[in-house]
Structure formats: structure tokens, C-alpha cells
Design a binder for these strands. Structure first.
Lengths: 202, 202
DNA sequence: AACGAGTCTGAAACTTGTTCTAGATTAGCG
DNA sequence: CGCTAATCTAGAACAAGTTTCAGACTCGTT
């Protein structure tokens, strides 16, 4: 039973912040080689110059670590998109273009993508808060691309479906069962939901 | 392009068929309790009355076993749906109703669902052929519900998106981040793609 | 500067998926 | 029936995620 409490993150000292970053970087490096399986906790600890127990104090499991990595990347992406939003005539186009941008970034480091995405979908209830943070970030990115401030329930459902498609299409691509072109097609297809008149719903 | 070595399944003898079923049943039983984590290979072997090595001869990994389980269940569902197809006025309604039927079945055994779905999305390239079989089955079920014999490329893409949403929504529900009602909404939303005029595409 | 709480280290231990091995059993076949 | 190859069994062994523990260290406080 891995029941646990998250009693409001204690503020980290500088050295601790540095350790955390060092661990994340070590994780990213190992993930960048062999993907999910290549991220071995002992090696991460070694590469980060930290004891195994310390690694586990910062990230209570391998999945936590990799989800944190994804959160990191998404924050960078989000910031970068805020600075220079994707262009496009309508919302659907902009969202599709934004996701394809992210997809191209993942293609540059397929192993890293493997580690992060597999961790994300494999995560169990014990990682829910962290996965939720990732999900909120993704939602924010998509809503930004849509140009929506105050989404309706319908819009939120559409965004959820887009995120579902996004994650699952990545998984399918990573396991070699779907081509890059197909993923692109899926993204464009699902984005067709965005400007859909609401009479098909409910 | 699923390159791999599957030298045409050797025909199983009766005893072997029985062993296989026994293993699957043991797996289902254990999964029915604690989900993915509760399916421990030693326990499966014990419960199935088979040596560990034999279990691994039949299913080369835990994920293989659980994916085979899902394939089993889907075959039953498919057969049952062939006998009595889901009613509904248009394709979108029928597909949504069919998926909700399956969803309700999964809700009756959430732990089993957890084991099967997590295995499915966690599967790596080594399990691709098996996962692909599951995917083909799901596609067949959805196409049946749509009433389509010879799908176009567009329709196939829509079906893929529906499957993506289906899997990912299940994952999200299983990890407690999305409610049953939300999953229902997501399914209905994505099914809105089915009767969409093709001018939003490409 | 000394103290005490919390943190970090190094190493061992434990768990569960997976592999390996030597010997028994079974199946198909002449 | 007797042979041979394949299969099965019991059990040890290995790999990697996770836990645990005793002792060293750090930081904020006094």
C-alpha cells in the first residue's frame, strides 16, 4: 500500500534545488539513450552524484522522476510558446500546428520521449498529482493555441479528447505501430472537433 | 512494418490448450483482485498449476500475458456484439453506445481493467504484434458499430482517434483523474467526428 | 561554538520480473 | 514397445526497483 501524503512541498535550499536539477538532468541523459528501460535508478543516482536513498527522497519512484522530467520539458515549451505563439488562421490549425511542433521536438529525442510518455501513461494513482500537473500544463498549452480564456464545458471535453489522442498517438508511434504521418493525420483529425458546431453533441 | 520473428504458431495439443487457458484464467483472477501489480508471475504459475518456466514459455512476459487477456475479452465482446449489435440511429450514436457498453463491463471489474489497459499502453516494441491484434479487434468492433465495410482513409483516421481516446480515457479514469461521467462525455465528443463532413479535414 | 533536527551517504536487504539448468515427463513415430 | 525431441518441473540465480539502517554531515538556532 503506497498511500502517502503530500503536505505542501517544503521550500528547498539552494543545494537541494541543485541536487534536484542534477538528478533530473542525469535522468534526461540516461533516458536520451535507451528510453524508459535505460533509466536505472542506481545509474541515475551515480550520474547525479547522489546516494540512492537521496534520489528516492527527491523522487519517490522512477515514474515520479520521469513525469517530473516531462513536466519540466512542458514548462519550457509553454514558456517558449508564450513568447512566440504558433500562427494559423483558425483555432484548429493553430492547435494542430502547436502539437506538431511538440511532436517534432519529441522526434529529435525519441528515447527521451519514450521514457517520459511511457511513464506518464503507466503512472498509477500514487502519481496522480504529478500526472495531473502535466495534464494541466498540456491543457493550458492547447487552450492558449485555441485562443480561449474561459473555456466552456464542451471546449474542455474537446481539449481532453485532444490530449487523449495526443498521448495515445505518441504511445502508438513509440511502439512502432503508427507512422509519423499517421500521427500527424490523427492530430489533424481530432483538431477537427474544435470548430465543430455544438449540435452533434449530447 | 512490424518486423519480428513469429514462425507461425505451432499447433497446440489439447493439454497445452488447457494449460494456456488455465494460465489466462489464473491471470484474470489475480488481476481481478489488485490490478496490474497483483498479477505476480510466481502466483500466476502457482494458481495455474504450472512451473514458472512453463508460464514464460506460453507468455514471454507479464505484459504479453495481460495483453493476451485483453485480446480474449475483446474476442468475447466482438462475438457478443455480432450476435446482438448495439442499436442507434446514426453511426456516432451506435459507436458511442458500443463503447459505453464495453466501459460498463470494465467498471464491473476495475482491477482487471487496470491490469489489461496498463499493460496495453505500457507494452514496448517487443509486444507490438500482440498489441496490434488487440488494436485490430477494437477497430473491427468500432467499424461494425459504424456499419462500415470498406472504410476510407478518413474513416480509418477517425477510428484511430476514437481508439486513442478510448484507451487514454480509460487510463485517466483508472488513475482516478477523470470521472465516469467525463469518460462518457469524452467518448460522445470524439464520436462527433464520425458524421463530420470532410471539409474540415486535410 | 555547541546543539538538535533534518538530510545525506554507503551498503545491504528485500521484492518481483526474468533467465537458466538439470533432471523428469510426454508426444509422436518407427 | 522403445527411441528421440520437445516439453515440463523445481529450484536456483540474476536484474532492477524499492526499502532500510547506521553513521556522517548541514543548517538554523542559541
Amino acid at each position: 500500500m503506497t498511500a502517502e501524503a503530500r503536505p505542501a512541498a517544503p521550500p528547498l535550499t539552494e543545494r537541494q534545488e541543485a541536487r534536484r536539477r542534477s538528478i533530473l538532468q542525469a535522468g534526461a541523459q540516461l533516458a536520451g539513450r535507451g528510453g524508459f528501460e535505460a533509466v536505472q535508478m542506481r545509474e541515475v543516482a551515480d550520474a547525479a552524484g547522489v546516494a540512492l536513498g537521496t534520489l528516492y527522497r527527491y523522487f519517490p519512484s522512477k515514474v515520479h522522476l520521469l513525469v517530473a522530467l516531462m513536466q519540466d520539458q512542458l514548462q519550457h515549451l509553454h514558456a517558449s510558446l508564450r513568447r512566440r505563439p504558433t500562427a494559423g488562421d483558425d483555432a484548429a490549425e493553430r492547435v494542430a500546428a502547436t502539437l506538431m511542433l511538440a511532436f517534432r521536438a519529441l522526434q529529435r529525442e525519441p528515447h527521451l520521449a519514450d521514457a517520459m510518455v511511457r511513464a506518464l501513461t503507466f503512472a498509477d494513482r500514487g502519481v496522480s498529482p504529478e500526472v495531473d500537473a502535466v495534464s494541466r500544463l498540456t491543457t493550458a498549452i492547447v487552450l492558449d493555441a485555441m485562443g480561449v480564456e474561459d473555456p466552456t464545458q464542451e471546449q474542455l471535453s474537446v481539449v481532453r479528447v485532444i490530449e487523449h489522442t495526443w498521448h495515445s498517438a505518441l504511445i502508438t508511434w513509440l511502439s512502432g505501430r503508427e507512422s509519423i504521418a499517421q500521427v500527424k493525420g490523427d492530430i489533424e483529425t481530432v483538431c477537427g472537433l474544435i470548430d465543430l458546431p455544438a449540435d452533434t453533441r449530447r
